Computed example of a mutant assay.
Amino acid sequence: MTISVVVADDQELVRSGFALILDTQPDIEVVAEAADGRAAIDAVRAHAPDVALLDIRMPGTDGIAAAREICARTDTRALMLTTFDQDDYVYDALRAGASGFLLKDVRRDDLVHAVRVVAAGEALLAPTVTRRLIGDVLDGRPRVRDAPALGALTERERQTLTLVGRGLSNAEIAAALVVSEHTVKTHVSNVLAKLGARDRVQAVIAAYESGLIVPGA
Rank of each mutant, 00 (worst) to 15 (best):
P49K: 01
G63V: 08
A98E: 06
R38D: 10
L177F: 01
G211I: 13
A174R: 10
I56P: 00
V30Y: 01
D85C: 03
V115C: 01
L163W: 11
M58S: 04
G37R: 06
L53G: 01
A119M: 00
I134N: 07
V112T: 03
R198W: 02
L133H: 07
G167T: 02
R45L: 15
T154D: 13
A147G: 12
A171E: 15
D199P: 04
I213P: 08
I213D: 07
A19I: 02
P127G: 03
T76A: 08
A39S: 15
A176K: 13
L138K: 00
L192Q: 07
S169F: 06
P215N: 10
D75A: 14
A19P: 14
M1G: 10
D88V: 08
A147D: 11
Y91R: 15
A67Y: 04
V7N: 12
A93R: 02
D87R: 11
S4N: 12
G63Q: 07
E12G: 12
D85R: 03
Y89C: 01
K194A: 11
R156E: 15
D50H: 05
D36I: 03
H113M: 05
A197Y: 00
V5T: 00
G151R: 14
G165I: 08
G121Q: 05
V6S: 01
A65W: 08
L54K: 03
R145W: 03
L81R: 02
A67T: 15
D87M: 14
V164S: 12
H113Y: 04
H47D: 06
P26F: 01
A40I: 07
R131G: 07
S99E: 11
G60R: 12
R141C: 04
I173T: 07
A120K: 05
L163Y: 13
L125R: 04
G17N: 11
T2Q: 11
T24N: 09
M80L: 01
S99F: 15
G140Y: 01
I70N: 00
H113G: 06
V44H: 10
K185D: 13
R77L: 02
A78R: 00
V137N: 08
Q159D: 15
T186E: 12
V184P: 05
L54C: 07
E155M: 09
A149Y: 11
T61E: 15
V31K: 04
D146F: 05
L111V: 02
G60I: 09
G37D: 04
N170R: 05
D136C: 12
T130P: 13
T128I: 08
I3E: 03
L161H: 10
R95A: 12
